[in-house]
Structure formats: structure tokens, C-alpha cells
Design a protein around this nucleic acid. Structure first.
Length: 559
RNA sequence: UGGGGCGUAGCCAAGUGGUAAGGCACGGGACUUUGACUCCCGCAUGCGUUGGUUCGAAUCCAACCGCCCCAGCCA
């Protein structure tokens, strides 16, 4: 149905080559392996899209596997939110939902196998001692004094570790590899630690837990994963990943491939920093519309389609990069432009009385729901003597290139009439509080039979029919492109990232707005109903503004 | 000073020896009952640098430079 051609990237190339060589019997099985210790963000979306798309393109499948090997940081709140977010993005793991904790028994048995073959040993060194023995980047490490324990002793000790005979942190199981390896990961890495923490799935069944480096390759192999895609920082771990697969009788031989994680301008992406924002109260929660989390983007009004399109457009490579958030916003506008019904909403109302319009008359004017899609039909909008227009659409002393309403000037009210400003009414402080205009009855619908033209078309609402609403205007969370580079990233939080407008007026048809449905408020941007809405009070979030040439011109004029 | 990676436009990114795709951003124009959308035009004699191989190099070789990651009983 579409002419969609995937953009080549190095991982697609590797898979194409593997398929050509009939590697893995032509199978492509990937996995998305989050640790349930936080909410998913747009960076995870890149990985999710990559893994699920690669599998789908090759008639394979993608597993969702929780990498839950550290119970001290994990929680079901996160396994729940992660599943919700992956589904919302539009991906389906089918029957293939797994947990590393499902493999704890098998992983334990593999560990005994390593011990029996003299490839792992129980080490009694303290954490600090292990660090000292590990050496440095430039100096080799030295062997642990416990490195040469007998198989029987190791087996006995390891079983007693599992049985809970030793206190937390007193001993670990280590792989016996090479303390002089230039790759620190190969210097007898810890593969099991004693940790008494209640696991969100296995409860108190275990007091020893496997480390990521050990559990990950084996979990992949047990699931018959063919391509295990992870981020760049794990490149150094690949030799260890392969080492475990070589040493143990695993059912398959997955290949680890690393790509560059996503960075976006004007935001932070590390789970640690996002956690700080939530816990420090700098945002309202993981789903605060300013957060780069999937939950936050969803609440802001992003569509899954736009995020998927974005993830495809940014490409996949191995160089560290920071994508301009303007690209994300572009993908959103492109999607919403095609689909969002148009509405009229006045954010900062300015009263306009049309003096020559009959006092009690109300007309129903026909408006197009979406000029990009005629099948979306039309609707009626009430028009009457008193209306509101946008404050910004009137200037008493119009600057150069301002062609909206001004004294004596004529403009069009969208789908309505041409009006001309005849008088400006101010309060005692000199603030403009009302405009007096006249309308031309011949211009109903918005065009003049005499062919005369106006430069501007304004949106408006009828005073007696409009519905009150609150509108939340969001902007980037940070004022600098790379807040992560700052001493304290919180120092460049944008004080204007949220502006709440409480006296907005929206057209009556918005009264029945549904949660998560998107609208374009004409000439302003895309908006969606926020869950904070009540029957009394509608609350809309501005997802993204429309491109604004006038704003650009103003900026230029100021210079 | 060890090891692993990466350098193509302001930001992403394709390119795998035959003469620099595409997108975003930016600038100009057309159209316009959204200053939106859409459309058109422009935007790297150049691929980190310097040498070399070749009829021909972003692609191969060498040296150098710059940036990122690694010393958790985190993932």
C-alpha cells in the first residue's frame, strides 16, 4: 500500500548480508531489553523502533524482555509503564514477553557449569579490594588470592552463597578470564553478587543475583535472539558477551551490534537526570508534558506515528550525535496537519462589537474541518454581534508588515465577514478593552462580491456561544541546546517552559472534546485535551505551534 | 601513557574505487479565506589533516589531529 523503502543503515546491511548467507537459517529475532527502573523516553523509542522494525521487515519477531537482575532499583510500576508505552508506540511482542528473572535457575546452573570447568571462582575480596586488584586503564590487574580455589571448594561456596549463608557483599562469583587484559571487562568480571532485596517478581526466592554482563548474552541465547542490538557503551563488553556464549552449552549464538543512542537538543535523556527532575519537583511527574518520556510526549499530544517517522528519519549509525528537536516537531506537524480537525479558539481574547450587526441575530456559518482532507466534512459555527478575536491580531499603531486589524483597516473573519475597525475603547489605564467594528453583509462566508481583497484572515469566537477553557502553552524544558554539558543541568531549566492561560474561549463544538484527540487551533498550533479537564473546565495542551513566519519577521524587525 | 569506537553542510545521514542521495534548519519566490499547508529555487569543486597508491580516492595504505566510551558487587 505504501512506497516505503527503508533507508539503508549499517545494521540493515549486516542483516541483509546474514540473510544472503543464510545465517541463523534466515531468521531475524531481536529484542528490546529495558531494565524496569524508570520510564521509557524518546531515546528508547529509537531502540524500540529499530528492533521491532528490523524484525518485522524480515518476517521475524521482536521480544520484550525485562532485564530485571537488580531488584534494588526495579519496580512493577516500571514494567507496567514500559509495556503500555511500547504498545502505544504501535508495537506488539505477541507471546514473547520475557523476564531475565525467568532464567535465574538456568543462569545459576550455567554458573555451576563454569565452576566445574574451572572457569569461575568464588572471591572473598571486598568491593574496594576488587577495585584495587583490577588495576587501572594503563596498568594490568593482579590475580585475586582466591583465584585458585579448587572446583569443589568453589562449588560448595557458591551453593552456600545461594543458600544464604553469607552476608551481602561478602563474596562474589567471578569469571576466570585474564587479569592483565587491556579490556577491563575481561579482568575476572563479577558475575554473581549476594544481595538481599525483594525482587518484584521472584520475591525472596534468591539472595544472589546475576550481573548484566553474564545474564544478558545467556538470556539472548536462550531466546534464540539472532541480532542483539545495544548502544555504543557496550562495545567494550562484546568480548565478554562472546566469551560466555563460547564457554557455555547455549542453544544459539546471538550477535551483539552496537549503535549510537539518541540525543536531542534542549532536553536531557539520561534516566538519572530525568529521575532528578521528577523527584526534585522540577516537573509534575514522569508524564509531565515537558518530559522527553513517552508518557510525557503522549500527554503533550504527540502521535505514535510521528515518533515512529522521526525514528526512521534520524537514521542509525555509530557516531555520537544530537538531533535537532526541530526535526521531531516537524514530524509531528506533518502528521497532525493531515489528520487534526481545525477549530477556532481565542487564547487571549479581545472583545469586538460589530455595531451594524442586528442585536439578537445568530447565524450558523459553515466551516471546513480539514482543508487537507475533504472527507472530514464541515461544521457550523455560530456568529453574532459580539465576538472575541486574538489580542495579537490588533495593533493600534501597526508596525511595518503587520497586516492584521488596525484602526480603519479591514480584515476577514474566517468563514465569516469582512469587518472594519471604527473605534478603539480603552479603560482608565489606557488599556485597550474593546474594539468597535462594522461588517459588510455582502461578504458572508468570507469573500467580497466586488472582488476586493484583504490581507489578513482572523480566527474568532462568538461571545455568547464560546466555551471557556484553560490552555497550557509548553516550551522546551531547557534554554540551552545541550543542558547535559552544563555543570548543573538544572541551572538552565527554562522558567517559561509552561505558561497557563486561564481565560481562553473555544468554539462550542469543542465542548465534547475527547481525551487524547488532537485539534489544530487555526493560526496557532496543535492542541489536545489534557486529562486534568473536567466537565466544567476544558484544559488543552499546546502540543506544538504552527510554523510562524510573522514571529520570524518580528524578530528580524527588532534587530 | 592501555583498550574500544567515531570524524561527510548549522543538525542528522546515504555512500563500500567511477567523479558527493535524502531529510531538518536556513534564505529567496509562487500560491493562499490559517503569515499554516503545498509547490519551485538556492544551500559541501568538498568528505578531520597531511602524504601515498591509482587513469580515477569520501571509499585503499600510512602518519598525524580531534571527539566519545571503559577502572559498579548498575544496566
Amino acid at each position: 500500500m505504501s512506497d516505503y523503502t527503508p533507508v539503508p543503515n549499517f545494521i540493515r546491511n549486516i542483516i541483509a548480508e546474514d540473510l544472503k548467507n543464510n545465517k541463523n537459517d534466515g531468521q531475524v529475532i531481536t529484542r528490546f531489553p529495558p531494565e524496569p527502573n524508570g520510564y521509557l523516553h524518546i531515546g528508547h523509542a529509537k531502540s524500540i523502533c529499530l528492533n521491532f522494525t528490523l524484525a518485522a521487515e524480515n518476517n521475524g519477531r521482536c521480544h520484550l524482555r525485562f532485564d530485571d537482575t537488580n531488584p534494588s532499583k526495579e519496580d512493577v510500576e516500571y514494567t507496567d509503564s514500559i509495556q503500555r508505552d511500547v504498545k502505544w508506540l504501535g508495537f506488539d511482542w505477541g507471546e514473547h514477553l520475557y523476564y531475565a528473572s525467568d532464567y535465574f535457575e538456568q543462569l545459576y546452573e550455567y554458573a555451576e557449569t563454569l565452576i566445574k570447568e574451572g572457569k569461575a571462582y568464588v572471591c572473598d575480596l571486598s568491593a574496594e579490594e576488587i577495585r584495587e586488584y583490577r588495576g587501572t586503564l594503563t596498568q594490568p590487574g593482579k590475580n585475586s588470592p582466591y583465584r585458585e580455589r579448587t572446583v569443589d571448594e568453589n562449588l560448595d561456596l557458591f551453593r552456600r552463597m545461594r543458600a544464604g549463608e553469607f552476608p551481602d557483599g561478602s563474596r562474589v562469583l567471578r569469571a576466570k578470564i585474564d587479569m592483565s587484559s587491556p579490556n577491563l571487562n575481561m579482568r575476572d568480571p563479577v558475575i554473581y553478587r549476594i544481595l538481599r532485596a525483594t525482587h518484584h517478581r521472584t520475591g525472596d526466592e534468591w539472595c544472589i543475583y546475576p550481573m548484566y554482563d553474564y545474564a544478558h548474552p545467556l538470556s539472548d541465547a536462550l531466546e534464540m535472539i539472532t541480532h542483539s542490538i545495544c548502544t555504543l557503551e557496550f562495545e567494550d563488553h562484546r568480548p565478554l558477551y562472546d566469551w560466555f556464549l563460547e564457554q557455555l552449552p547455549v542453544p544459539s549464538n546471538p550477535q551483539q551490534i552496537e549503535f549510537a543512542r539518541l540525543n536531542l537538543t534542549y532536553t536531557v535523556m539520561s534516566k538519572r537526570k530525568l529521575l532528578q527532575l521528577v523527584e526534585g519537583g522540577f516537573v509534575a511527574g514522569w508524564d509531565d508534558p515537558r518530559m522527553p518520556t513517552i508518557a510525557g510526549l503522549r500527554r503533550l499530544g504527540y502521535t505514535p506515528e510521528s515518533i515512529r517517522d522521526f525514528c526512521e528519519r534520524i537514521g542509525v549509525a555509530k557516531s555520537n550525535s544530537t538531533v535537532d528537536i526541530a526535526l521531531l516537531e516537524h514530524c509531528l506537524r506533518e502528521d497532525l496537519n493531515k489528520r487534526a480537525p481545525r477549530k477556532m479558539a481565542v487564547l487571549r481574547p479581545l472583545k469586538v462589537v460589530i455595531e451594524n450587526y442586528p442585536e439578537d441575530q445568530v447565524e450558523e456559518l459553515e466551516a471546513i474541518n480539514n482543508p487537507e482532507d475533504p472527507s472530514m466534512g464541515t461544521r457550523k459555527i455560530p456568529f453574532s454581534k459580539v465576538i472575541y478575536i486574538e489580542e495579537d491580531d490588533f495593533r493600534e499603531d501597526p508596525p511595518r508588515k503587520f497586516y492584521r486589524l488596525a484602526p480603519g483597516r479591514e480584515v476577514r473573519l474566517r468563514y465569516g465577514y469582512f469587518i472594519k475597525c471604527t473605534d478603539v475603547i480603552k479603560d482608565e489605564n489606557g488599556e485597550i478593552i474593546e474594539l468597535r467594528c462594522t461588517y459588510d453583509p455582502e461578504t458572508r462566508g468570507g469573500s467580497a462580491p466586488d472582488g476586493r481583497r484583504v490581507k489578513a484572515t482572523l480566527h474568532w469566537v462568538s461571545a455568547s456561544h464560546a466555551h471557556p477553557a484553560e490552555v497550557r502553552l509548553y516550551d522546551h524544558l531547557f534554554t540551552t541546546e545541550d543542558p547535559g554539558a552544563e555543570e548543573d543541568f538544572k541551572s538552565c531549566l527554562n522558567p517559561d517552559s509552561l505558561e497557563v492561560l486561564t481565560s481562553c474561549l473555544v468554539e462550542p463544538s469543542l465542548k465534547g472534546a475527547a481525551l487524547e484527540s488532537k485539534y489544530q487551533f487555526e493560526r496557532q498550533g496543535y492542541f489536545c485535551l489534557d486529562p486534568d479537564s473536567t466537565a466544567e473546565k476544558l484544559v488543552f495542551n499546546r502540543t506544538v505551534s504552527l510554523r510562524d513566519t510573522w514571529a520570524k519577521i518580528q524578530k528580524k524587525l527588532k534587530k
